[in-house]
């Protein structure tokens, strides 16, 4: 990143190749989507944590009727090793729930930003 320190706030939705989780300072609940308070205990204080990017695939779909009318798109839910579930893409037809997976952040193809793409761990 041009020698600059990694800004943990810059996750994939803002162009940074990473998942950034939030760990509750009070109850250690770890969450993914932005929220002002911990959904478990209501505390405000959270500490960002960069996810390693590995986990277990828990759901796979191939979307045939796509928003843009394109080819079937692979979509997955992955339970990260840190706990939270994230949504991502996959290009692997063989991927099944239960498989261990790792993430790569790739250009979305829509001309803007990155998206998480999961594949089975070698």
């Amino acid at each position: 990143m041009n020698g600059l320190p990694v800004d943990v706030a810059t996750d994939w939705t803002r162009g940074g190749p990473r998942f950034v989780l939030a760990v509750c300072d009070e109850c250690s609940n770890t969450s993914y989507l932005p929220a002002e308070h911990c959904s478990r205990c209501g505390a405000r204080g959270r500490t960002p944590r960069v996810a390693v990017g590995t986990g277990t695939c828990v759901a796979v779909t191939w979307v045939h009727v796509t928003v843009d009318g394109g080819d079937p798109a692979g979509l997955v839910l992955v339970e990260l090793d840190e706990g939270p579930v994230v949504m991502g893409r996959t290009a692997e037809r063989e991927l099944r729930p239960g498989d261990g997976v790792g993430v790569a952040f790739e250009p979305s193809g829509a001309g803007r930003g990155l998206v998480p793409v999961f594949s089975r761990k070698a």
Partner: peptide, 19 residues
């Protein structure tokens, strides 16, 4: 976090079904 991945409502429910 979800729409840019190309999901649809049937896609979201399909993920629930898969799981």
């Amino acid at each position: 976090y979800e729409v840019p991945l190309g999901g649809t409502v049937p896609g979201y429910y399909a993920l629930l079904a898969s799981r």
